[in-house]
Structure formats: C-alpha cells, structure tokens
Nucleic acid binder design. Structure first.
Lengths: 126, 126
DNA sequence: GTGGGTACTTTCTATTAGTTAGTGCAACTC
DNA sequence: GAGTTGCACTAACTAATAGAAAGTACCCAC
C-alpha cells in the first residue's frame, strides 16, 4: 500500500467512532463494570463496593457512557432513598462476555507475565 | 503510566497485579498495537504511521510496558540508522487475538451502538 | 440531633496524555 | 558541500483527564 493511502486511511479511522466505542468497552472501569454486571444486576453503591477503588464520579461517568452506547440499562425507581439498578442489555452482554474472556486469560497467564517482568527488570539492573 | 517511578509501580503491582495487566492489554494504544502486530512485525515508525495519531512518547511507553509484560518482543539491530522490529510473543499473540475479536465485535455492532446513542440523546433533548 | 445510607454533582488538585523540540548519524537532494 | 529527511528514541513542557473530597436532598435508626 502506498504511503499516501496509509495516511488517509489512518485519518479516516481516527474520525470514525469505531475506535471510540472500543475505548469505552476497554476503559479502565468499563471492563470491570461489564464483568460485574454479567453475573447479575447491581445497584450503584453496590457496584462501587464490588469493584473497589472507584471514585463515585468515575463510576457515574462510566455507567453513563455505557448506557449511552446501549450496553447498560439504567432503571431508576422514584423512591426515597433513591434506588437505581444497572443491568446489561443484549448488546452489553455480548461485549461483556468477550471482556470477561480477556480477564480470565489474564488470570490464567498471570504467572507468565510476572516471570517476563522479572526477567525484564533483572536484565537492566545487574 | 509512570513507568520510570519504581516505587509507586511496585506498590501498584502488589495491590492488584491482575487488574494492571488487563489495563495494559486494554489500554488505548495497547489494543491498537496488539492488533497491528497480529498481522506482521512492524518497525517503530511504521507502526506509528499505521496506527495514526499516536505520539512517539505514548507509543514508546506502550511498547515498553507490553515488552515488560512479555507480550511484545523488541529486536533492536545495532545499525545506523537504527532499526528496531517489534513482534508478538506467544503470550502476546494469545492476548492480541482476543483483543482483535473485541475490535471485530465493535465493528459488527457499530450500527446498534450508534442507534442507541441517538435514542439516548433524543430522549433528553426534546 | 448525630450518624449513616441512597445516587449523584461540583470543585479542586494530582496524575497522565500529548505536543514540541532535541539527539547523533547516514543517506538522500540540490 | 549545505540542507533536508528519516530513524528511534528522550526530555521538558502544557493541555486534558482522573481521582479525592465535599455538597445535595432526602430518609431512617438510635
């Protein structure tokens, strides 16, 4: 492929929102939310406790993004105290299953990663 | 990612190593690098052009992180001008294939996501 | 009436991403 | 033979973003 074609294609890809959706799904808190919601619906604070070390702001933001992309369903009951349930949509379930597979892979291969790191670190600090 | 900060890095790695590896694999530029390297080895600048809109700093950082985790192999030939080839390790190929599946899913379901977004936006701007 | 819980929003600061410029050397152009 | 370009980075700086903390508005238990 010619260099000029390569350049214009990257330009088009950056403008195309495909990369952005992928970023939402693979975002730091997005992956953890999706994996959690795969087991069952969660309430906001419950989800926050389950994930751990998420700020409320980031969880809200992540959930809003995923809801807008049609991956997460938000069910707010107009009661006091407020009760909001989050669950996966069909679309969200598809994404979440793939993300969970990645997470499981990470789990399985953790030892290899740690070994690689140790080798890497030792190679440059003799 | 403060790769140079030894102290806080080991601290973070001890806290939740599994989550961190997943973050490296699903990082913004990490996914794009892995998918590209799945087709063939790339040189640094070549990879930069292929991905598009990556700063050299971020590409360097991403590649170093992935190399340290044992996902990417770096082959630097001591010639002038410098020539450095990046390729996937066995471990990296496994991760990359899963990431590519996610990217393909995003491609397939893009229309649904866009429809969901439109519905979401229209619902709160009448 | 103090403390805790609900689901957020707002404000402010710490961290991180991205931009720009520089490195040393060779191979091109002119 | 001066100037430009490309290579694979690194360092310094700035813009953007994440995270911490507090505020909101309401209820319940003690």
């Amino acid at each position: 492929m010619a260099v000029s074609d390569e350049g214009r294609r990257s330009e088009a890809e950056a403008m195309c929102p495909h990369r952005l959706v992928l970023e939402h799904v693979t975002s730091r808190w997005g992956v953890l939310v999706l994996i959690r919601l795969l087991e069952r619906p969660y309430r906001f604070s419950e989800l926050r406790r389950a994930i751990g070390r998420v700020s409320e702001k980031m969880l809200t933001q992540t959930l809003q993004t995923l809801e807008r992309d049609g991956l997460v369903h938000r069910d707010a009951k107009p009661v006091i105290p407020p009760r909001v349930d989050y669950s996966l949509t069909g679309l969200g379930r598809e994404a979440a299953e793939q993300v969970r597979e990645l997470a499981r892979w990470t789990d399985r291969r953790m030892a290899d990663v740690l070994a690689a790191r140790q080798a890497y670190d030792e190679a440059r600090t003799p």
